[in-house]
Amino acid sequence: MDGGQDRGPPLLEVADLTVRFVGHEARVQALAGVSFSLRAGEVLCLLGESGSGKSVTLRALMQLLPPGRTEVAGQVRLAGQDVLALRGRALQAFRGGSVAMVFQEPMSALDPVYTIGQHLIEAIRQHRGGSRAAARARAIGLLELVKIPAAARRIDAYPHELSGGLRQRAMIALALSCTPRLLLADEPTTALDATVQIQVLILLRRLQQEFGMGTLFVTHDLAVAAEIADRVAVMYAGRIVEEGPVAAVLRAPAHPYTAALLASTVHDQAPDQDIPTIPGSPPDLGALPPGCSFAPRCALVRDACRIGPPPATHPAPGRMVRCLRSADVLATPLASLATGDYR
């Protein structure tokens, strides 16, 4: 997938990750063979709309999906370690120690009956041991690192006493408390104001570079992806349909879905014009079409698209796309993509 660039072995390798939710009546295919890799110090953005499998991917990487009701298959390796085989204490040390997660809604992801400091101290002492005083000192250090003003005082604040931006910073401090090698961020800026959002993004980007963490960043916001990502992977109906360097993918998409997503952003549109939308709705994950899952909504669809899932092709070094007509999409200037006018 990662064509050409070889800067050492990847930190995270995911191969053919499949997740099924098993209910009483229906089995839902949430992920249908997701593969990607991530190097240390790199930010990969998982882009896609609700239900495309972004968050499920993150949760599968941490084995957070409920065990009785999900079937997880495939390979996940973090620095050579088989993640999906981890159990018990090894799994607990892995969660929070090697991999940490930043959640979307910091209000509900922090326990309302504990102070910020108690959260941090608990995590620090569990993974690194040491005295309460040392953990507290480190916690204050972390809060200062994420630019929380008056950290020594705020450490004793309860989550509801902080603003949304400060809460998310505290959540980031919590994730960084044990210097993980991989950071999973599940739409960490979605619940924030636009101005706070950019501050948190800049902070995340800086810390990620400082710590040299590999980062998987889930978002549905193309602007956020453009801000923070090195590479993007566009997900649709449980598959990665396109992947590549952020600038290349966002400037010249190779998949009709990516192109349609770009065309339907509010930026750079004339005020009196309707925003182009993608007709139809995402497929029912309980009954995926046999071919390309975007085929029912695609303007470029051909009969061949409906037969089987399109294979991965590499239109350029470092880029991957699963579309039979990617050459046509690439050949079309972005401006005319907006109108669905391909030829």
């Binding site: 957070l64 799994l91 969660r95 959640f103 809604e105 992801a109 326990d111 995590a123």
Partner: peptide, 14 residues
């Protein structure tokens, strides 16, 4: 089912 329980599990709590 609340987020902070999942967050606690994600930070390695037994």
């Amino acid at each position: 089912h609340l987020d902070y329980i999942e967050a606690a599990r994600a930070s390695g709590a037994s």
